[in-house]
Design a protein around this nucleic acid. Structure first.
Lengths: 231, 231
DNA sequence: CGCCTTTTTGAGCGTATTCAACATACGTGG
DNA sequence: CCACGTATGTTGAATACGCTCAAAAAGGCG
């Protein structure tokens, strides 16, 4: 995990109790006494874009709760290409297969500055019975994400896919959103980098989006929605 | 569930103990004494192609272990279209969200003659602690399937996608496989019915596949693999 | 046998890809 | 500090690919 900026690392779970997105995270159901049963390091990390949480086929040592930011899950194709198979955001858990499999079946990489909480595998095992329902829910979320990617981001024209992605990023209805590399946009939508670029440029020209700062966009939600729905 | 042919329905789990694919199914871990704790009907069903196991947004009453055949999970798009977001086969469990959510978030429909085992939700709840690990594994499988669909069936040229689908269906390396409607092939691969049809026809002309019986194909695995990998 | 659905084929068009060139930004060493 | 190199983003032109619309052919099923 190079390029990683470690903001803080606690040996205990004190911070979990104060977590602002507590209702979203893996430990949502746990009570004070459960926390005290854990004596393993849970690290709070800030990741720069491009930072790898874990690599494909890497041994699974921990799961990561995403507190803020955006993480891609990608797999390598036989021809050397790659495909983003899912996107994870706030409240999602990356690396859930650690609870079952010895290795990760995809790489997880931050797309934008991302804050995660690294939970070692033994912590999960120790809290296992209490966590079951919550873990199930996270698996469920994972499937929903994946299906959403197929349904919204791999269907329709390139123009529609890009519009849907821009709508999907950032809070629903909010005027701004943060984008990431055109390369990743292409791999996510199943189109080429150039096509992704053309569509975004075109949106800029038509004033559907405006690039406030590098990869920071102001967007015309209504107009984009119209395109997403097919003109 | 119209068009359904019920072959047998037991009120007990005797048959689970004798199940030929026992190692694959949801009850893999359970012991004799666990079975006797269940007194709810578990039905063994044969489904004709096109039979709906459950509909999108339908209330979730049961999960279905697939003993034989092929099931599609599909969702409707805002424009009225539809997209197959996953394929399930032997050993997979359809409707797992029944364990968490009140309704199904997609429709599940048999693509070929399919044998399933219908397990009412209360059975799952009753056996819950014992089933946890196995359920997790099934969720995991679900995610793997979904990612596989994105990676192999929604990437590359139409020609490649069709080749990969034909390879994916049936046992790995086996000379034959069973296909389904061109309409569904299209919705699964993110291409039109016509394009799917053209590709299959083309494969026939080039003797890469041969239609033994309706939708039953003999295939040239090596040649198709070459196409799947990009010529 | 005729009707309906599904599959197949054709022709023209629009879109996305390919391959190339050029622009821009960033970081490093001269 | 600027020159240079690399990585990333943008644009152009020609091609190839998949889509649309239309029509014909091939099954089921009453």
């Amino acid at each position: 995990m190079r390029d990683t900026q470690i903001q803080a690392a606690w040996y205990g779970l004190d911070t979990c109790e104060k977590c602002a997105i507590r209702h979203l995270v893996l430990f949502a159901d746990l009570k004070r006494e459960d926390f005290s049963a854990v004596h393993l390091p849970i690290e709070d990390l800030w990741l720069a874009p491009g930072t790898e949480l874990y690599g494909q086929d890497q041994s699974a040592e921990a799961v990561f709760t995403i507190r803020e930011g955006l993480v891609k899950l990608e797999q390598y194709l036989p021809d050397g290409g790659r495909r983003i198979v899912s996107l994870l955001g706030q409240g999602d858990v990356a690396g859930l297969e650690a609870t079952l499999a010895p290795a990760h079946e995809h790489a997880a990489v931050a797309l934008v500055p991302t804050k995660v909480c690294r939970i070692p595998k033994p912590v999960i095992d120790r809290l296992s019975p209490k966590l079951h329902r919550q873990l199930m829910t996270k698996w469920h979320d994972m499937v929903l994400r994946s299906h959403q990617c197929a349904r919204e981001l791999s269907t329709g024209s390139a123009r529609q896919r890009v519009a849907r992605l821009i709508l999907l990023l950032g809070l629903p209805g909010a005027p701004t959103c943060r984008l990431f590399g055109r390369d990743d946009v292409g791999a996510l939508l199943g189109i080429t980098t150039e096509t992704a670029c053309r569509m975004i440029s075109d949106f800029k020209r038509r004033k559907l989006v405006e690039e406030i700062a590098p990869n920071q966009f102001r967007r015309d939600v209504a107009a984009l929605q119209a395109i997403a729905d097919g003109q």
